[in-house]
Structures are given as C-alpha cells and as structure tokens.
C-alpha cells in the first residue's frame, strides 16, 4: 500500500519535472528561432512564400466562419435586445463582441487547427524524411531556413486573419438584422460608430491577435521540430499543436483581457 502511494507520488514528480524540462527546452528553442531570424528578414521572399501557405489557405475557413458567427450574434443579440426595446444597439453588440473577443479568439482557434497543425506536420515530416539533416549537411541551418520563415508567416498573418474574421462577422450581423429582420440601417451603423472605440476596442483586439499569432506559431514550429521522426511521432505532434495552442489562446485571452479592459465601465 505504502509502496503504491510512494510510486504514485514519484510518478507525479516525474511528470512535473518532465514537463518543466520540456517547457524550458521550448523556451530555449523559441529564443533560438528569434536569434536566427535574420535570414528571414534579409530574404523576405521566404516569409512571403510561407504567408501564402499559412495565411491565404486559412482565409476561406476564416471568412466563412466569421460570416456565420456574425449572423448568429445578430440573431441572438436581436432576440435579447428587443425585449428591452433597444434593438438598434444590435450593431454595437455584434461589433464589440467581434473586435474585442470573438474575432481574435475564434480566428486564432481556427488558425491553430488549420495552419498550426499543417506547419507542425510539414516540419515533422521534413525531419522524419531526413530533409532537415540533409540541409544541415549542406551547411544550411534548418532553423534559419525552414523554421523561422514559418514562424514569422504565422505571426504576421494572424492579425490580418482576425481582422477579416471581424469584418465578415459584422457583415453577417448586418445581413441578419438589417436585411432579413428589418432593423433600421442608419441606426445599426451609427450606433456602432459611436460605441466602438478605435484605441480601446480595435487596437486591443489587434494586440490580442498578435499575441495569439506568436503563441500558435511558436507552438506549431516547436512541436514539428521536436517531433519524434516517425509516423506516430508526427501525428502525435500535430494533435499536441492543436490542443496546446487552443489552451494557450484561451489562457492568454483571459490574461490580456484582464489587463486591457479592467476598469472600463
């Protein structure tokens, strides 16, 4: 009995040490990527190429989801607001929910599962098929040539994707409330303009998505680079990317929101 308890405790300790070690290893890798980013900046074409794969290919899913989320927000908001006779505020509700929260968060979650997993799988596969070793033997640093451009492409495309998501969402809200339900169009837009602040709402939303971009891209490239060079290894790493970055996005969102909107009445 005592033996079992001891070995249980030992198991927990082992896991804690393991994950702490891995976290430190990931942090070191992150710094390494930053240090080796000069090639990406000097040869920006490398980043542009990856921007196409990470950014443009995620665009469709982001646009479609944004539209639907906006439409649902419009419906739900209208239902509730009309009970208080303030259905004209539905534009404000839709816009604020999107630029403050749903735009950055949902876009980042979608980005993690579409682009983040693809980055992990690609780098992991390059490792498993010895492409990274081959590059090293050709005197080209794979962290500088393969990892850093993908990281920066993720960081750069995230804010744009989040902005697109919000724009589509507002459009979806407009479609549902103004075009289908018949809320006054002038009120919808003017209420929105009066109540959405550029610095407090939009800028903070962009800052959020920028941090989410860093988190997702860093996790995706790390998991890919660290994946065991086998088929199971790569598929496991891909799953971990989606799970870990989703948790990171939601955790970061809470922290950032607490800093940004505390004390705003």
């Amino acid at each position: 009995m005592l033996k079992r308890i001891i070995s249980g405790i030992r198991g927990i300790g082992h896991r804690v040490i393991d994950s702490t070690w891995r976290l430190g290893y990931a942090a070191r890798f992150f710094i390494l990527v930053l240090l080796k980013s000069t090639t990406s900046l000097r040869r920006f074409g490398l980043v542009i190429r990856e921007l196409y794969f990470t950014g443009v290919l995620s665009l469709i899913i982001i646009l479609v989801s944004g539209l639907f989320v906006g439409m649902v927000l419009g419906l739900q908001g209208y239902e509730t607001l009309q009970k208080f006779g303030s259905e004209s505020a539905v534009g404000t509700l839709v816009a604020l929910s999107l630029v403050r929260e749903l735009g950055p968060v949902v876009a980042a979650l979608l980005f993690a599962s579409r682009a983040g997993s693809a980055i992990t799988a690609e780098i992991g596969l390059m490792k498993a098929t010895e492409q990274l070793s081959a590059m090293g033997m050709m005197a080209v640093d794979p962290v500088a040539r393969v990892v850093a451009p993908r990281f920066w492409a993720g960081v750069i495309s995230m804010p744009f994707l989040a902005a697109m998501f919000s724009v589509m969402g507002v459009f979806g809200g407009y479609l549902v409330t103004v075009v289908f339900i018949g809320v006054d169009e002038g009120l919808f837009w003017s209420q929105m303009q009066n109540n959405v602040d550029f610095r407090i709402d939009i800028a903070n939303g962009v800052i959020k998505s920028f941090f989410f971009g860093i988190a997702v891209a860093a996790i995706a490239v790390f998991e890919g680079y660290d994946a065991p060079p086998t088929a199971e290894g790569v598929s496991g790493a891909t799953t971990r990317t989606v799970v870990t970055s989703s948790l990171a996005i939601l955790g970061l969102d809470f922290i950032l929101t607490a800093f940004m909107f505390r004390g705003i009445s």
Binding site: L125, M126, T129, E130, Q131, S133, A134, M135
Partner: peptide, 8 residues
C-alpha cells in the same frame, strides 16, 4: 541520404 531526402 538513405531515401534521397529531397526537399518535398
């Protein structure tokens, strides 16, 4: 490399 390791 063993299986070529071409950049895919």
């Amino acid at each position: 490399f063993q299986f070529g390791a071409l950049f895919t």
